[in-house]
């Protein structure tokens, strides 16, 4: 009897509603999704193929040089990059590495391009902040796999839905940290810029963004790392790369291959992480 109190209405069809909604969007916006899938997909393939076409030695050397200068001319990261990348090459995973890198690169860039302006908007408007914050919470706490479903519905399988899922999953830190960074700028500096008669955009570009740079870069670093993890998950919907190697090793219970591909991802993660972190520290 008591239990029945909770059943005063039948099950609310949220799942059905969401499904219906997604189908409708797929229908109505297919004119948009189709060309994105095609052109953007082609573009991604092009980037990935171009990277693969470059001799691995050159890429390894370029990364080493970048690591050397960015880490303040210390050898640790440089040596690690050379050895790590060579190891991936040695294991025959170079092509997969290039695919994964392309996905991370493009989805991170898109996250930054979308995330920083939204963060700026949030920092300037309390209303925007109040609306966007819960959306960001939702985006980040929803299990990443869930995004794969609409991604497939919209864009089929391959790189493009992978990017889409990664965008939703990885953009929030950039937005949050941009907002935080700008709000943290000391009120005296903001006053100083206003007192001299700065316009809103002068204040933003000459004072707030430079002051918030370190915080924004910390957010971008997180975004890149999240993008990398999402790109691996996205192999489940056919995104190519190291993740797919892990997945196929899983399907065949091949511990050895899974471990090697996993190590490849770790190496890539460490290099990307240290490089973006050091970008932050540079004067």
């Amino acid at each position: 009897m008591l239990n029945n109190m909770l059943d005063f209405i039948p099950k609310i069809p949220v799942a059905e509603g969401t499904k219906w909604f997604t189908e409708k969007i797929t229908d109505y916006f297919s004119f948009l999704f189709e060309p994105i899938k095609e052109h953007f997909g082609n573009f991604m393939d092009f980037v990935s193929e171009s990277l693969t076409a470059v001799p691995p030695v050159i890429i390894i050397l370029l990364v080493a040089v970048l690591a050397f200068f960015i880490s303040g001319k210390r050898l640790g990261l440089t040596v690690f990059s050379i050895v790590g990348l060579w190891f991936i090459y040695n294991q025959g995973l170079w092509e997969h590495l290039m695919s994964t890198f392309t996905l991370v690169l493009i989805s991170s860039l898109l996250s930054i391009i979308i995330g920083v302006p939204i963060g700026i908007l949030m920092s300037k408007s309390k209303t925007a902040e109040a609306i966007i914050t819960p959306i960001l919470d939702f985006m980040q706490t929803m299990p990443a796999f869930v995004y794969l479903i609409p991604a497939v519905a919209f864009f089929g399988i391959g790189m493009v839905p992978g990017i889409f899922a990664s965008l939703i999953f990885a953009t929030p830190p950039t937005v949050r940290f941009t907002n935080l960074g700008i709000r943290q700028v000391s009120s005296e500096l903001v006053e100083a810029s206003e007192a001299f008669g700065s316009t809103g955009s002068q204040k933003l570009f000459k004072v707030e963004l430079p002051m918030a740079k370190a915080t924004i870069m910390a957010g971008i670093n997180q975004t890149v790392m999240l993008a990398l993890s999402m790109v691996v998950i996205a192999s489940m919907i056919g995104a190519p790369g190291l993740g797919r190697e892990v997945l196929s090793a899983l399907q065949r219970s091949n511990v050895g291959n899974g471990f090697v591909a996993g190590v490849g991802i770790v190496i890539l993660a460490i290099i990307i992480d240290r490089v973006t972190q050091n970008l932050n520290k540079q004067k």
Binding site: S186, E188, A192, F196, G197, S198, K206, P210, M211
Partner: peptide
């Protein structure tokens, strides 16, 4: 007409002394 001097100086840490002093003119 109005310029302000602040208690905690309000200098822009990422700018040089000269660039700080230029600020008011730069934005004009």
């Amino acid at each position: 007409k109005l310029s302000m001097v602040f208690q905690k100086f309000g200098l822009f840490p990422f700018r040089t002394i000269l660039e700080n002093a230029e600020y008011g003119l730069e934005i004009q």
